[in-house]
Amino acid sequence: MALMPKRVKHRKSQRGRIRGDASRGNRVVFGDFGLQAEQPGWLAAATIEAGRIAAQQYLRTEGRLFVRVFPHKSITSIPLETRMGKGKGEPEFWAAVIKPGAILYEIGGVTEDAARICLARLAHKMPLRVRFVKRRVM
């Protein structure tokens, strides 16, 4: 079952524009290493889950993985070969709105080498340009 909110006020949302950089959620907080977005975009629930599985399969029982994003936005689409008009389409999937600088995943309890390999595997699943970051002390 893909990630989605339990309760929402409205089923459909407008597309919106992603402006500016992430001013929150842009630091490694829970783990020791993280994957930071360098581009804005939407991260579908299925993509977040694919990344989680890719990382978890590498980590197995070692370390801990933290998913820092959640798909709050419903994305609608109209079926193929449908005439224009007749209202907005139905929700197709849920996505997280990502601003540049946002930390997508974090890993703790593993060595830096292992974290780099793990997050590199995970990065292949991402539709955005991402980079490896470490927890900062000061």
Binding site: M1, M4, P5, K6, R7, V8, K9, R11, P91
Partner: peptide, 9 residues
């Protein structure tokens, strides 16, 4: 939990 979330209000 269904394919769609519950609507508030």
């Amino acid at each position: 939990g269904g394919a769609e979330p519950e609507l508030i209000g």
